[in-house]
Write a protein that binds this DNA or RNA. Structure first.
Lengths: 150, 150
DNA sequence: TCTTGACCCTCTAGCGGCTGAAGGATGTAG
DNA sequence: CTACATCCTTCAGCCGCTAGAGGGTCAAGA
């Protein structure tokens, strides 16, 4: 086990620049290097990076992952902290689902009411122009900062 | 109606730097200015900014909003284009809800199975370390790029 | 041994959609 | 005429990457 970054990338499905980025922000330790300054990794890094990837897939933020990694290094401590992080994240996911459902309802109403005529009569444009036409109050449903999906 | 940017901000609930940002990216037209270069707005801008804010609350991306604004300026054209934008967005919202539900299920399982003992036995850490423990395949459920909510 | 070419390096900038701060100018009420 | 709230421009930062430029290294085959 003395693999270059490309091989680590293949095994973990994490892109090469992302691996370097994780090193930069301290999620991955600085690895050994060859004489020519190329990174060489072992199986510990494969496991750690799989952990990170999996946590990201589950939507944990990097700061949470940092904590979870620190906790996992210390198997005798109580797992209340890890538990708390997961619960906190679960609450955030549930809240986000609720927000999106409110948006979905409003969008469905807009689209169903559209009589496919002129813009001047379009429900879509009309509703956007006048918030009073909404049944639900989604003013708290703050939009996603990043992109909705790929 | 000849209001400064702070008053526009108060009336639309859009923050001052955000208004200037919208001007910069061309969502809002360049307004009239006083001799001392301060922006002055009229009721058209209040309406336009309300439209933008409402569309953002519904999760439309800026590019979509740009198109919706262009369409709304032209009331005699058919509303098929506006309709299509809304439908496309609705599909994205539905997909995102489905992804988040898969995450929620996995997180609930992790948290419920936690026996509140040592980290070494913690389900939370265990599941993160070993993707094989997941029932569902959430590998396609790409994480949010921005923050989950405020 | 030399050459090829696939890989690797660092550095920097950009994505979306804002948000905040620095440092200074303006507008208005008293 | 002064005080001070508000305005201006400019730039940097947030998150979590991702891509590109411009070069260096490594290993296999001739």
């Amino acid at each position: 086990m003395d693999i270059p970054i490309g091989e680590l990338s293949r095994r973990t499905q994490v892109k090469v620049p992302t691996i370097r980025y994780y090193e930069q922000i301290g999620l991955l330790p600085e690895p050994a290097r060859t004489e020519g300054q190329q990174r060489r990794y072992g199986s510990a890094e494969v496991m750690r990076l799989n952990f990170i990837r999996h946590a990201r897939e589950l939507g944990f933020e990097v700061e949470d992952i940092r904590e979870l990694l620190a906790l996992s290094a210390d198997p005798d401590r109580p797992c209340a902290d890890a538990d708390a992080i997961a619960r906190r994240h679960l609450v955030a996911v549930k809240r986000r689902i609720a927000q999106l459902k409110a948006l979905r309802a409003e969008l469905e109403r807009m689209v169903e009411d559209c009589r496919h005529g002129r813009i001047g009569d379009c429900r879509v444009i009309e509703v956007l122009a006048d918030h009073g036409q909404c049944r639900r109050d989604h003013t708290r449903a703050e939009p996603p900062r990043g992109r909705m999906s790929k």
